[in-house]
Simulated assay, not measured.
Amino acid sequence: MLRLTFLLLTVLLPGCFLTPGMEMQTDNGMSEIELPTLKNGQLVKEKLPIQSITADLIIQRETAKRQVVSSLPLVSGNRASYRIGPQDRLQITVWEHPELNDPGGERINPDMAGKVVDDNGDLYYPYACTLHVAGKTVPEVREELTRELSKYFKKVKLDIRVLSFQAHRIAVVGEVTTPGIVAMTETPLTVAEAISRAGGATKESDLNNVALARDGKLYRLNVQALYEKGLTAHNLLLQDGDVLNIGDQKDSKVYVMGEVGRQQAIPINKGRMSLSQALAEAYGVDFNTSRPGDIYVLRPGDMQPEIFRLNAESPDAMILAEQFPLQPHDTLFVGTAGVTQWSRVLNQILPGSFTAMMSTAAMMGI
């Protein structure tokens, strides 16, 4: 009976349908199945090339990352000064001419004080009639109003300040203490300042994953690098209509599968996790059952999937693993050695453990 069993195994084992678990067929350097991919605005199905994790790949992707930083939108210098707009409330004080100022002086309700710029960007003032002030700075409006009043009064001296900033606002949403609308004032508003004015980031926030929506485009910002490394490239000046979304780290996980010590979902701490860190968090590669030459990183992307492969048969390949950063939703898969698959097949087909069966065979002299 035992001889018959071995004969059956010899016939059946070549059939891959008996091999338990997952195995990636990558002989041609392409993915085994077709995947949905966004190309030129259209979703298509195609097999993906499997990119080897090498020093060249890491250099190439690090260079591309720096180019993304250099392409972030900037606010030109003239936008840094506050420009008056509709619904702003201005306080205008003309010295030695109290009849032109707000009646009641300091006793007036601040909400009722000053003069409001109308929806067309115009401001009415006695003697000067209607002035178009939208898009102008306070000094520019002061100069224009002084010129108009000088037609009726001698040595006009006046002061203008913004009592209520209503024209230019941004929205801060996501993982901040008090999400909502933040008004832009005379002080230029940066990303870090906007987060601070929204009460600061919550404990669940992912400051490596901050999204800025502007003019129909979405920009990814890494604010954590500003706080930890002093890098200011992502601390952009904001402009009217911007929407700032602070990400949630609960959704930032890496999934580890295959021949590792423990298959699990690993949260990314403050947006940073390398391939080697993920392997260590999963209690390392099981070198008794794994195929170190087949360590894969499967990255779904935003309909832009990628597949990477690390050959870790040489220990120094772990340096590359440490230099290869993972992203949220990456799946790390460690392949199974052929002998392990064969052993598992035997354990599934034969009654009892394969080890016990081999011991019995030895005692029978087979």
Rank of each mutant, 00 (worst) to 15 (best):
T185L: 03
P98V: 09
L100C: 04
A211H: 14
K154G: 11
L158D: 00
E186A: 15
V116T: 04
F153G: 08
K151A: 08
P188E: 04
L149M: 10
I195K: 11
A113M: 11
V116N: 00
A211P: 01
R142G: 02
E228T: 14
G105T: 07
Y227W: 09
N209E: 13
L207R: 05
I108T: 06
A192T: 14
P98L: 09
E106Q: 13
R169C: 00
L158C: 02
K115A: 13
V210W: 08
K115S: 12
R161A: 09
H168T: 06
L149H: 08
E204T: 14
E140P: 06
W95A: 05
G121H: 00
L131F: 07
T178Q: 10
S205M: 04
T130E: 02
A171P: 00
K136G: 01
V133P: 04
R161K: 15
L207H: 08
V133S: 00
T202E: 09
R161L: 12
H132Y: 12
C129I: 14
N209C: 05
T177D: 08
T187W: 00
P110F: 03
I195E: 00
D122Q: 11
S150A: 11
E96N: 15
P188N: 06
A167C: 07
Y127D: 02
I92V: 03
V162K: 03
G104K: 03
Q91C: 01
L221W: 01
N208V: 07
T185M: 07
W95D: 05
T202S: 11
T93F: 10
K154E: 14
Q224P: 00
V162M: 05
E186H: 01
D102H: 06
D102W: 07
N222I: 09
R197T: 04
T130F: 12
C129G: 03
D159Y: 15
D215H: 15
K157R: 15
E143W: 05
D159M: 07
T185Q: 13
V94C: 02
S150P: 07
